[in-house]
Structures are given as structure tokens and as C-alpha cells.
Design a protein around this nucleic acid. Structure first.
Lengths: 113, 113
DNA sequence: GAGTCATATTCCGATATCGGCATGCGTCAA
DNA sequence: TTGACGCATGCCGATATCGGAATATGACTC
């Protein structure tokens, strides 16, 4: 056994910064591969490979348009990601303030003895 | 050049399912390494290595507690993740319903001719 | 200091990743 | 049919990852 998670996982797909960039760019509409590659400063095969990963995970859909192939967002697969990360929201501001609060409670309890 | 993103990236850190499991488990409070390893069915060195990654990214904090070392959540680094994924929220339900709506429009326009 | 427990580190093998380059395939136009 | 264009795929090298096993480090107890 080696690497546990493969490319079939959404979290892994968005671990790559360039793939995140592609997704962001696609929010403004469908784009052909070459345009994505040019906009993000990557080679055409590079963009194509990233798009393949995104397609296999279901984050983008492709549609033939004459000589071109248009890629578009299919963002519903990002919902679990947002939900998972959002599940930690209550801890964002509590990280060490909660610890502080706990210490305060202990102090007070001791004074009340 | 090879792999672009390293372990210093939060998105990469949470790409590993076991590391996500660790984070979820830590929501219920600080835990020592051995307990985490046992709860998630992984070896002690395995847990230790994952925790190291999480620590380097800043997702967990460690605190010495006698012979043990307690790991706790520091979830604020997950905020950018939630925000990034949440930025696609408007596209979750539009993916192909929007396409449907478009088709309906076309139909209607044709009937009106 | 010796022993024990908790954790970290190192070495290793198998594998997967990313980038670059060349090439293959499909589509359109002349 | 030939050529041009858009895109996908294949191969390669460098590197990073994960898991496993052994070992090292550190801390507490006696």
C-alpha cells in the first residue's frame, strides 16, 4: 500500500492549487481548454490533465462545441467540502478563548469554596 | 519540478481521509496520540506522522501533559477552506436546473412563433 | 540509573503525482 | 484529401506520499 486516497476523491482533487484556479475561473462561465490554459499560464496538456481529474471527480462537465470542447462547473460536489469545513465553524473563534474561559471558570469555582 | 503543492498547504493536509478523521475526533476535545491511533485503527507511528502534518499546517496544537502529549484542534485554518468552497454555493443548485430552464425557454419561444 | 510508558523519527518499498515533450485523434475548412 | 486547429493521451523523470517496521527520544517511577 502506498498513497491512500486517489484521484476519485474531491478533497484530493482540490488539493492542487491550479485545479482550484480552474474552478474559480469557470464560475464566470464555460471555457475551452486553450483559454483556461492561457489564462492560468499553463500548457495545454497540463490544463487538459487537470481538467480530466476534475471531470472524473465530477466537478466539471464537458460539452462539445464544434472543434472545441467547453468545460463548465458542476459545483454540487463541493457542497460536502463546504459542509465538512463549516462543521468546524464553532471552533474558529474559540480555539484558545475557550481555554481561557475554562481557566476563568476554574478560578471562580475555587474562589467560591 | 514534480508535485507542486507541499504539506505546507491546508488543502493538501485535509486531502488525506485519516487526517480529516483526526480533526473530527478532536472536536470533542484534546486527545493523546495513542488514543487517536486506537480510535481510528491506525498504528502509533502512523498517527504521529499525520499529526505532524496537521501541526505543521497549524490545524492542531500540541501540549505536554506529563508523560503524554495532548493534541487539540486549532480550526481557524479551516476558515479559508470553508470560504473557498462556500464561494460556489450559488452554483450548487443551478448546475443543470439552469440548463433545464434554458431548454424550457427555448421551447416556449418556439411555441410562440 | 534502570525500567517502562508515550511519542517521534528514520529507513524502506511501493506507488502516485506533476510537469514537459511528443504524438495521436477528431473536427472543420479548403 | 490535405492541412490546420483543438484537445487528449502516452511516456518519461523527479519527487513526494503513505504504510510498515525498527529504533530513537523523552518523561515519569522506582
Amino acid at each position: 500500500m502506498a498513497r491512500a486516497s486517489t484521484t476519485s476523491d474531491v478533497f484530493n482533487a482540490i488539493a492542487e492549487p491550479q485545479r482550484r484556479d480552474i474552478l474559480v475561473l469557470l464560475r464566470s462561465g464555460e471555457r475551452p481548454v486553450t483559454e483556461l490554459a492561457a489564462a492560468l499560464g499553463m500548457t495545454q496538456p497540463g490544463a487538459s490533465k487537470h481538467l480530466r481529474v476534475l471531470r472524473e471527480v465530477g466537478l466539471v462537465r464537458d460539452r462539445k462545441d464544434g472543434k472545441q470542447r467547453l468545460y463548465g462547473l458542476d459545483a454540487c460536489k463541493l457542497k460536502p467540502v463546504a459542509e465538512w469545513a463549516g462543521g468546524f465553524e464553532q471552533f474558529w473563534n474559540e480555539s484558545f478563548e475557550r481555554l481561557d474561559a475554562y481557566v476563568q471558570e476554574l478560578k471562580q469555582a475555587r474562589e467560591e469554596d
